[in-house]
């Protein structure tokens, strides 16, 4: 298989195949916390962070499972290990840096069962990425998620002060805006080829 450059992996994961706008991953938090700029940036940061950690975990688990010939346990181990690692990290941060915990901590439990996190783990395994590639992929996915979230938050903050018709208000409006964003992101297709 042709080697993909790290740069392409990043662009692909963040812009061309944006996790939220092209793969619909992490839609729940996307709908939930894109209302305010501040929370959106923090959430984006936290997700990227967790993605990096779980990407590393997934890489290790996959290697281990291949070694003991038990790849059928992949999914269950991923989810369990990611969940517990995030919890460990949460406790660790709480202990080490209360300021960071206040900024990121409250999002961590919410993220544990975010499909985008699990998807990073699954996709990088499916694509057969190496360690560095996996990390770049996770970073790209996180950056893309943050970008989508932040763009959305800016628009929603502005739309809070708009005469949105009653029946469109709420989730429907967010979805429609996400659809338009998704269309705009189509402009990135083919970048880096």
């Amino acid at each position: 298989m042709k080697e993909e450059s790290l740069w392409y992996i990043f662009i692909n994961a963040s812009l061309i195949n944006n996790f939220v706008l092209a793969y619909f991953l992490g839609i729940c938090p996307f709908l939930g916390v894109s209302g305010k700029m501040e929370t959106a940036t923090k959430m984006g940061g936290a997700v990227t962070f967790v993605m990096l950690i779980s990407s590393m975990c997934a890489f290790a688990i996959h290697a281990l499972l291949v070694a003991i010939n038990a790849t059928f346990l992949q999914l269950i181990s991923f989810i369990v290990v990611i969940a517990s690692t995030v919890q460990l990290v949460e406790m660790f941060i709480k202990k080490m840096s209360p300021a960071l915990f206040r900024a990121l901590g409250i999002f961590l439990p919410l993220i544990t069962t975010n499909c985008a996190i699990l998807a990073v783990a699954l996709f990088q395994t499916n694509k057969g990425y190496g360690f560095i590639e996996s990390l770049v992929y996770a970073l790209g996915a996180g950056a893309g998620f943050t970008l989508a979230l932040v763009l959305m938050a800016g628009l929603r903050e502005q739309l809070e002060f708009a005469d949105v018709p009653g029946i469109v208000k709420g989730t429907a409006l967010t979805l429609l805006v996400a659809g338009i964003l998704s269309l705009s992101f189509m402009g990135f297709a083919g970048l880096g080829s």
Binding site: L65, N69, A70, S77, V80, S84, Q87, M91, K94
Partner: peptide, 29 residues
């Protein structure tokens, strides 16, 4: 053989997880 590996792996994993949760429960309630 596969069964044994699987049992051991998952058993170990859950043990770890349970231990961690118990710890967390004690420390952070």
């Amino acid at each position: 053989m596969t069964i044994l590996i699987a049992l051991a792996a998952l058993g170990g994993l859950t043990l770890l997880l349970a231990a961690m949760l118990i710890l967390a429960n004690k420390k952070l309630y």
